[in-house]
Design a protein around this nucleic acid. Structure first.
Lengths: 200, 200
DNA sequence: GTCTATATTCCGATAGAC
DNA sequence: GTCTATCGGAATATAGAC
């Protein structure tokens, strides 16, 4: 791997700092230091802090969402999809544990520009999933249910532990390695809770 | 109710602004405006922004946690406690929907001083709940389970929707009233998912 | 206790030399 | 393209009159 260009160094540094501290918490100086370059260069390559942030946010969303969407549209049973979804999500978050906090902070900071950008990255394949739920309900595989509840339950169980990670660690005394181990084991637990709740 | 004192006005205003915008997003001027007083008074009553924030954070935690702890130590079956816990939590959050975002943002902002303050407010009655789980497992009422998973699952399902509220609203088109209605209905759903997952 | 005015600090952004 | 130096604004905090 050759030496990264200045722009690449900036992007990597900005991602680290923004994901860690959010738009308001991050300092341009922090990003420059992390990248090992001068603060002025940030403005040379990206016009402003906001523009740099937007670039990072979009990048993060673009890696984050399509992978999950792909699972939802694959040719699998609903139960399989739930297991794959939980596994993929937790696997991904183990590598980027601060992203959930980052996302939650920013979508709650309005205006709605960022929300729109998320949905722009690619619309979630709700229709396909809803159709599948109807099919499997009719086939007697799962109980009648609100697709929305299923989605919200799944996301809640996968994402929330990362949001509450500092509290979990404070209460249990886990370090980060132990936390990741715990989440890996929890993956099966979560799938099971969800599947049990919808099995006919 | 008599006219609130200046200090009370400051506390009420600071709470509103801090809960809404977080420590970094809030401006002392915003708080002064909200309270209808001068900015200098904030420093007269509380020495600094940080100190004012700490006061608010502790207050919020002090109202937030004991109510839930009380349910966990009540003389009820585990199933009853789960239902009461979800109902109380969702009821409370309908009135203060920004508190979860506030808490999550701040506990992820280090240093750990704030986390310590939460646990200081009063230790969660883990021992009592764990003992009850063991008893009911032995009695054949519930499956053998990790108490930690039960707690995390319950909190996840109750809290996460408030954290993701902007996304939920963007995807479903709900307004706030509809969102609250949805959560009220969801309360039963959440209890059921949890109870189904532990019933023997 | 409350206000006005001002000091101080911090940070994003820019100018200009190289 | 990259740096140093600096501007300008915003926000916290303080001084001092009343």
């Amino acid at each position: 791997m050759q030496t990264p260009s200045t722009e690449e160094k900036i992007l990597a540094a900005a991602r680290k700092i923004f994901v860690d501290k959010g738009l308001e918490g991050a300092r341009m100086q922090d990003i420059a230091d992390e990248a090992g370059i001068n603060k002025a260069m940030l403005h040379y390559y990206f016009r402003s802090k906001e523009k740099l942030f937007d670039t990072i946010f979009t990048d993060v969303a673009k890696e984050f969402l399509p992978k999950l969407f792909a699972i939802l549209t694959a040719d699998k049973t609903l139960f399989e999809k739930i297991e794959l979804f939980c596994a993929a999500y937790i696997e991904h978050e183990t590598k980027t544990p601060y992203v959930p906090v980052f996302i939650i902070k920013e979508i709650n900071r309005g205006p709605k520009a960022l929300m729109q950008r998320i949905t722009q990255v690619g619309s979630p394949p709700f229709d396909a999933v809803i159709a599948q739920i109807k099919r499997e309900t009719k086939a007697g595989i799962i109980k009648p249910l609100e697709p929305f509840d299923l989605l919200l339950n799944t996301l809640s169980l996968c994402i929330f532990p990362y949001l509450a990670k500092p509290m979990v660690q404070a209460v249990t005394g886990m370090n980060t390695v132990q936390f990741n181990d715990m989440m890996k084991k929890r993956c099966a637990t979560v799938s099971k809770v969800i599947i049990d709740s919808i099995k006919a």
